[in-house]
Structure formats: C-alpha cells, structure tokens
Amino acid sequence: MMSLLISVLVPYGPGLAEYADVVLNRESDKAGVRPVIFPHWFHRVRYQCRVCHSELGFEMRAGANLVTMQDITDGQFCGACHDGEIAWSTENCDLCHSALPGTAAGIRGGHETLGPGNW
C-alpha cells in the first residue's frame, strides 16, 4: 500500500533512483527490451573502480562506451564477470534489462548536479 501511495504521489521522477545508477539505452528500446540499469553502488561494494575503469576498459563517462550484447557474450565489458561463473550469465535478460521502457540513457539518482547527471 505504501509503495502504491509513494509511486502515485511523489512527483520527484527518476531522482528517486539510487545515486550513480546508469541507464544504458543505446539499443534496448529499439530492440524492444527494457533499458539496462547499471547500479554503481552494488558493484563498488565488490570491486574497486579500477577493475571496470582500467582493467575492463570502461570509459569514465556515461554514453562513451559502445557496449553491445555481442561484446558481452564474447566476454568483453559486462561479460568479463557476467559469464555464469563470477556473476549471472546473459541468459538472465531481466536482471540487467530492468528499467521502465522509454527511460533515457544517462546517470540517474538524487544529488545530481547540472553536469554529469545531464549527459
């Protein structure tokens, strides 16, 4: 009941998302699947920034990485972990492709400033 009330009444929009959630939607909407949400908070509890942003080659800017499902199944980018060994494999579409359809790509979450949050 509380969930329903909050979602109906709170007019804050995607600002309710957790700080630094990244929405990836270069291809998702076009392909008819939900956009991807990458939660920074979940990953940084487990890995230091350097692992993804140095070892795996993710640029430190939302939108600067061209990540395709083919890359991921080939073990690149997210696929370095999401291989069914370290983390869930690509068969579990809904676990990553979990955003509301039509959500624009970019960095989300409260406390955003005018810069990075609007890329």
């Binding site: 969930s3 909050i6 979602s7 709170v10 804050y12 929009g13 995607p14 309710l16 998302a17 957790e18 959630d21 929405v23 939900r34 949400i37 579990n92 809904d94 676990l95 979990s98 955003a99 509301l100 359809p101 959500t103 989300r108």
Partner: peptide, 14 residues
C-alpha cells in the same frame, strides 16, 4: 527498487 521510478515494477525478475 520496486518504487524508485527507474526500475520496471512489472519486471518478474525484480
């Protein structure tokens, strides 16, 4: 996540 207005609450895997 269900009410953060970013995740799809209808996603069965949520």
């Amino acid at each position: 996540l269900k009410i953060d207005q970013l995740h799809d609450p209808d996603n069965p895997a949520l």
